[in-house]
Write a protein that binds this DNA or RNA. Structure first.
Length: 243
DNA sequence: AGTAGTGTTCGGCC
DNA sequence: TGGCCGAACACTAC
């Protein structure tokens, strides 16, 4: 569930509750007082990368699904809900997620130009952020939420394969053309991910992530835990160049 | 049936 | 102070 495009899908799916009043709220969150939401009207839903934001007039609830979080719209599972919101026209249930109350204006909290799904994503700013960290490995750069908010481990493996960059390449060693590609293809993959996910054919389009054979060279992929992020990388050392 | 992972935070250590 | 590391969290697809 977690990566940015999945949050955009969620945002679209809950529009029926925009401008609706929460008539009852419950849940097992220890982080915040859920009764706060009862009687409140939802003014809208937003997202920043992997953060799903439920906006009320005076505050916002931030939901992060981490690795295992899930939700149900107008139905429920047999698990206890972390957050249950009841409306006259339906219900919203969130499970195993992290909740946080945001009381500041969202524009003070979030850099919208870092969100790969946001129309205001700023390519030039992303390049500048990358250039300030020349020692960073490419595999860590794509997972950096300040640079590519919403990108996750699937992004990392697919984008690096697409642009033929070895995951352990240093950002500072990339030729300018490759650095530009890193940014453009991360955004391109975000929108491919979104449309494939909507059609339930995301996995079918994986070229590298979880794969054992390189589709270009037919040689064995390497599978290794790499970088400061210690996440699985799948890569081909024939077609992915180490810079 | 057991394992590993679309992720992040926090506390401890050096 | 700060970077690094591992644990914790909690669910389910394969």
């Amino acid at each position: 569930m977690p990566e940015g495009p999945s949050i955009v899908i969620l945002k679209e799916a809950v529009q029926q509750f925009k401008n609706k009043k929460v008539i009852a709220a419950s849940g097992n969150s220890k982080k915040l007082d859920i009764e706060l939401f009862e009687g409140q009207i939802i003014t809208g839903f937003k997202s920043w990368g992997k953060h799903f934001l439920i906006c009320f007039p005076k505050f916002t609830v931030r939901i992060h699904f981490m690795l295992f979080g899930s939700y149900r719209i107008n139905e429920h599972t047999d698990r206890p809900a972390r957050l249950h919101l009841q409306f006259n026209n339906g219900e919203l249930n969130f499970y195993a997620c992290s909740l946080k109350l945001i009381e500041q204006p969202l524009d003070e909290v979030y850099d919208w130009s870092a969100d790969v799904m946001n129309p205001s994503f700023d390519h030039t700013k992303a390049i500048e952020k990358l250039q300030t960290q020349p020692d960073m490995l490419a595999c860590d750069a794509i997972l950096d939420q300040h640079i590519f908010s919403g990108a996750g481990n699937i992004f990392k493996n697919e984008v690096l394969f697409r642009i033929r960059i070895h995951p352990e390449s240093r950002i500072g060693n990339l030729p300018n053309e490759k650095l530009q590609e890193l940014v453009t293809e991360t955004v391109n993959y975000a929108f491919d991910f979104l449309s494939w996910k909507k059609e339930f054919i995301l996995k079918k389009h994986w070229l590298a992530h979880t794969k054992s054979i390189c589709p270009r060279d037919q040689v064995k992929f390497h599978k290794a835990i790499l970088g400061k992020t210690h996440r699985r990388s799948f890569y081909c050392d024939v077609c992915q160049i180490l810079y």
